[in-house]
Design a protein around this nucleic acid. Sequence first.
DNA 1: TCAGATAGGGATAATTTTATCCCTGTAAAT
DNA 2: ATTTACAGGGATAAAATTATCCCTATCTGA
Lengths: 122, 122
Amino acid sequence: MYEKKIPKDFSCGFTVLMEIIGGKWKPYLLFLISNGVRRPSDLHRKVPTATRRVLNLQLKELEFHGIIGKKIYAELPPHVEYYLTDFGESLLPVINAMDAWGGGYKHQFEQLMLRKQVPGEA
Amino acid sequence: MYEKKIPKDFSCGFTVLMEIIGGKWKPYLLFLISNGVRRPSDLHRKVPTATRRVLNLQLKELEFHGIIGKKIYAELPPHVEYYLTDFGESLLPVINAMDAWGGGYKHQFEQLMLRKQVPGEA
DNA sequence: TCAGATAGGGATAATTTTATCCCTGTAAAT
DNA sequence: ATTTACAGGGATAAAATTATCCCTATCTGA
């Protein structure tokens, strides 16, 4: 993936969690997969903003940690499907809690961000 | 802080949460502050790995979002104390849930990371 | 008077994460 | 025969985040 020069301290559970779901597209990919979007091309259609390349990288990391699994069908043209593992399922409540908290703050958050963008205005 | 070039989509609660606590030292700072470590210099002593500069930046962002507050005592030498706001308190359960999940996976995680480091070994 | 503690921040470098570009291969359809 | 859909990845650039270095100011104590 990428050889880190500054070692992280994984004695903290929080840091461990972040290592696993802390990629730009990972939480969204998990959401999609848990909602039945399984094939790489379908996932890409749902997240056209990201490149296939980038999605592949994030999927590979999720797979590395056993959050998702990958079924490769011996067909041509290629056919691949991702699925949430039981371990991955155990993550959903946590992600939902995070999303819920953030959702509650969203409105106020947007107000704040607006002020940041427009300090004096031209 | 830093003028971003690629706009983020904050319509998602998860993204909002990440914007708030997604800094390298922020969760740990929150933990410390919620446990009574209030003054900048004390926080730095607890996190000597980070520079005062960096801690200040992260603290400023937490303050910006109303997670923590700052009391400036009109004394010399300067005296500053941070505290968790009520809003910040509401974040603790979420952070705890995250930490708990990661803590449960920690052991297995360490095993995985070891293999990553030592593919074939010299 | 000089070191050390308090708190803060500008300028810039290093690190880490994402994005972009382009290439491989096969089968079905036009 | 050329295009399209499928899946995957190397090389490299850009963006974002952290880290490093150094300077300001005031008061206390040696």
